[in-house]
Amino acid sequence: MSDSTHHSQFAENSQSCAPAVSVSNLHMSYGSFEVLKGIDAEAAEGSVTSIIGASGSGKSTFLRCMNLLEQPKEGRLEIAGETVEFAYSDKGRPVPVCKQVTRNLRTRVSMVFQQFNLWPHFTVLGNVTEVPIHIQGVSRKEAIERAEYYLEKVGMSDKRDQYPAYLSGGQQQRVAIARALATEPDVMLFDEPTSALDPELVGEVLNVIRSLAEDGRTMLLVTHEMRFAREVSNQILFLHQGQIEESGTPEDVFENPSSERCQQFLSSIIH
């Protein structure tokens, strides 16, 4: 009782603290291999959450569940105003989520991929206007204005008529970020956005992501860039074998990790 009172007071005090993403008891398996074993997490509106962990810990899978690229077997996901419950059918198979719900959700949760995944047959401008024009029904004129605004933001305006194949990895990733921004999403997902980049190109991408964090965008970020995660995040989730082993503010997780696994992971990664 006291708990709920506290919670409602909290909500009244600060509207922006209502969770933009809320996940409870999320389970996901590939065949019989259970990748996520009951994840509970929340991300406040306008906050940056970094998900860290060793490879195979399920962090990318967790992120991909957020826009239903992977479908969880069990649990509940609230994101961008959509609520999705995952359940088994009588035959023991997960009930597929309604396609319309999936598409609605995906138009408001945009993703930046490790391999950029720009569409090679469109120019930079074409990549950024594609979703607004053809999926969101924005007029061509407005979509181009949006695209120009966000390309400016990521510093790629001068390449607007270039094809992706002619750009460096860092430039492609910045265009991919502009593509994600141009859909004006409620939540942005970043799946190891700098892991495929040459070391000297990492900085330009991180700078763009940092400026988005400063704008107060709700972002979930899977990353191996620990220093960066610590610097921009409001919340860190450390995943180990499909479970959240440690979570809290960057100070909590990086300076006083309570779990032994997390201590080991951090000491192996931070030199």
Partner: peptide, 14 residues
């Protein structure tokens, strides 16, 4: 490349 098709899915294309 699979990712290009996945990006189409991720942005809600039918």
């Amino acid at each position: 490349p699979k990712g290009q098709l996945e990006a189409a899915d991720a942005y809600g294309m039918t």
